[in-house]
Amino acid sequence: MEKTKTYNFTDNIEEIVKLEAIVDSIGEELGANDKLKFSVNLVLEELLSNTIFYGFKVKDVSNIITVSISKQSNELIIVVKDNAIAFNILEQEQKDMTGKSVEQQKVGGLGIHFVKKLTTFIKYKRINEFNYLTLSFNFNE
């Protein structure tokens, strides 16, 4: 991929259906395998649905989530930018993997668990009321 591709999503959960076509299209262009496309689709869906459901205080036309995708060497780099409330995924509790039975665990946190497990690198920044989440996926895995 020569340049970064950017996609905008509003705060409507129906927007999520666009992800499959976007990931398929970019995946085809880059020659990504099905596993990588599945991982990227899942991670973006978990992040975007979380922001749409819980991140915006009120529905507003100014609520925009921007997803930028580029390939750098063997990494697929994705930056998710939004003007939702501050949310640092790195500080969030993920699924309890300490050997507790599922009955004892909180069901929440699965999405965060998937995001952390399926990416090779995560960086979070809050700048001027915007969340910037940078994610990396290993292209050859």
């Binding site: 499959e20 599945f38 689709n41 899942l42 869906e45 978990e46 649905s49 599922v102 009955e103 069901v107 699965l110 999405g111 998937f114």
Partner: peptide
């Protein structure tokens, strides 16, 4: 060919109720 955490949550909830 695709399942996310919301789908898994429904299956987990169902399994817990059925138990």
């Amino acid at each position: 060919n695709y399942l996310n955490s919301s789908g898994l949550r429904i299956l987990i909830k169902t399994q817990k109720q059925l138990k």
